[in-house]
Write a protein that binds this DNA or RNA. Structure first.
Length: 572
DNA sequence: GCCGTTTTCGGCCCGACTGTTTTCAGTCG
């Protein structure tokens, strides 16, 4: 599937046009097309061939022609032409704070800057301050931005900063004069990674609230401080922004700062068509303010129903909200049990009993213990003897802990030839078999897809875990053909996992949405190796909500009895 | 470059903050 690579080219073309000083709306059109293509729940090649690409808003004649050119020849001549005009690596500087297209163009044309190191040197040599519209302060900021950029090139996985953010929010809520406070931005949309933290507060005397905010213990450096808005750098190195408004504008402001940008741009377009104007203070009819203390009023005023934040990416959710046809997403409390849990039998840190008791405390009805299989020596994979011993222990515990149920499972390796790490005779004895790839990540598409497909053909395999193997900020997905995998899963009634572990979150939102189109059902599993990690379930649910999944799609949102039936469905 | 039951041309979201200016350009979200 070439969606991602094509999206990347159009994104870059947008940057190039901006840099070259072309019509900014043309640049934006490319970027928009890029985002649309990136989020497509279907293979772009199919859409192109069936002529359905032209039905998508934001994709016009010129983009379609270029998509065709890429599918045909593997490159786009317009892109190649722009690229020949711009030094390699120069556009990376657009990601540096304080450097936009205009600044970069000036730097390139006057000082002939073409990369990161040259720009650092120019700043240190004080070469920037005498350029038109530059000064010492701007030079200093750019240097700071460069150093910050060098330190922190990755976005933060949501699971790593969730607790920090919750703590910061608590601190903001305690500031004198604050009436309400919420975290907005990509955090509220439950994106798998977070760039910076957006906090929104309402209260009287915003300037005083801003002042208190900049003095919170977590704050390392103040980047900007105004009457209603401030940006700071936290001790953890993450940027946090606070915006303070009157309580009557809280809903409008929360809507506005939750984004995404594309979602908001479209909403504003709708407002405009209705003769209204939206900004962070509310909806305006001429000069008349329609107060929006709560977010749903913004949507209602525009003739829409309220849209869950996780869906706000302008991927079709606005059109559904206009028709009141939004799916009822799985809720954060709808999961009835965890299907991917390790114990001390393999590489987990706690006993089966400890994990089960923690699950009971969370209100779960069941868990599936899925320790590694024999050949994964590095993780103390279970030889058959120990697997039997584990089964006995689970039987005993189940008598004691009923009606809570521990299912006997295993995370079984898919070997290089596509066979599984236990024989069918053994697998038959388990309630829930996870098959997953832990080796041969570099296999080509054909081979790795075949491995996964043949695992799914096995009647005892219940689910494929972390189906693309990617690790956020660390390992690219292996080259499995998503569409073939989805077809296979659907055909064989094999579930696909949404792995909730903070740096996996795999399937991700886009792939899970594609899978749903093919009729695939899912389980969300935390891959926990200790009881605290059971809490990561929320990140998996967030990813599922971003994929528009409902309880009907998620097998472990079912109560024990139904779940038990659904995990046996293949064996009949 | 995209879009349009008012338009096939002329629009394209909107405001805060900073640093440079002396009324505004650039960046950011």
């Amino acid at each position: 599937m070439k969606n991602k690579e094509i999206a990347k080219i159009f994104d870059e073309m947008g940057d190039m046009l901006e840099f070259l000083g072309e019509n900014p709306f043309r640049a934006r059109a490319y970027k928009r097309a890029s985002q649309i293509i990136y989020g497509l729940p279907e293979d772009i090649e199919n859409l192109y061939k069936s002529g359905k690409l032209s039905e998508i808003k934001g994709i016009g004649e010129s983009i379609i022609q270029k998509v065709g050119e890429y599918l045909d020849k593997g490159k786009i001549s317009a892109y190649e032409e722009y690229r020949s005009k711009i030094p390699e690596g120069l556009l990376e500087l657009l990601s540096v704070p304080y450097i936009g297209p205009v600044t970069l163009r000036t730097l390139y044309k006057t000082l002939h800057i073409t990369n990161f190191d040259e720009l650092i040197k120019a700043c240190e040599d004080k070469m920037l301050r005498n350029l038109p519209n530059f000064g010492p302060k701007k030079e200093e900021n750019i240097l700071k931005g460069l150093l910050r950029f060098k330190e922190q090139t990755f976005r933060h996985p949501i699971g790593l900063i969730y607790e920090d953010i919750s703590k910061l929010l608590e601190d903001v809520k305690k500031i004198e004069g604050v009436i309400r406070a919420e975290v907005a931005g990509s955090f509220r949309r439950m994106k798998e990674t977070i760039g910076d933290i957006d906090i929104l507060a309402s209260g009287e005397n915003p300037a005083r609230i801003i002042k208190s905010f900049t003095k919170l213990p977590l704050v390392k450096e103040i980047l900007s401080e105004g009457e209603t808005k401030s940006s700071v750098l936290l001790t953890s190195g993450i940027q946090a922004d606070l915006r303070v408004v009157d309580d009557i504008s809280f809903g409008a402001c929360l809507q506005y700062f939750t984004g995404s940008k594309n979602h908001n741009v479209k909403l504003r377009g709708i407002a405009k068509d209705k003769g209204l104007k939206i900004n962070e203070y509310g909806v305006f009819e001429g000069d008349k303010l329609i107060p929006c203390p709560d977010e749903d009023i913004v949507y209602r005023t525009l003739g829409l129903v309220w849209i869950p934040p996780e869906m706000r990416e302008d991927n079709g959710e606005i059109e559904l909200a206009q028709k009141n046809e939004l799916p009822e997403l799985i809720g954060y409390k709808d999961i009835k049990g965890d299907v991917h849990v390790h114990s001390t039998y393999s590489d987990g840190g706690e006993t089966i009993r400890a994990m089960a008791e923690s699950a009971i405390k969370k209100g779960y009805e069941y868990i599936v213990i899925t320790d590694h299989s024999q050949s994964l020596k590095i993780a103390k994979g279970l030889e058959i003897e120990r697997l039997y011993k584990q089964m006995e222990e689970i039987d005993k515990l189940n008598k004691e802990l009923a009606p809570f149920k521990i299912f006997k499972g295993s995370e079984v390796d898919i070997k290089h030839d596509g066979s599984l790490d236990y024989s069918d005779e053994i697998l038959k004895k388990l309630d829930f078999v996870i098959a997953s790839i832990h080796s041969g990540f570099k296999d080509d598409e054909k081979k790795i897809t075949k491995r996964v497909l043949s695992a799914m053909e096995n009647p005892y395999v219940t689910m494929i875990a972390h189906p693309t193997g990617r690790i956020i900020n660390s390992r690219d997905p292996y080259n499995v053909n998503i569409i073939e995998m989805c077809k296979g899963a659907s055909k064989t009634n094999t579930y696909l996992e949404i792995n909730a572990y903070f740096d996996r979150l795999d399937l991700n939102d886009i792939n899970a949405r594609i899978a749903k189109e093919y009729g695939v059902k899912f389980c969300i599993g935390t891959d926990s190796h200790n009881s605290i990690q059971l809490n990561m379930m929320i990140y998996g649910i967030g990813q599922a909500r971003r994929a528009w999944l409902t309880c009907d799609d998620i097998v472990n949102s079912r109560h024990l009895k139904d779940f038990e039936k659904l995990i046996r469905i293949k064996r009949k």
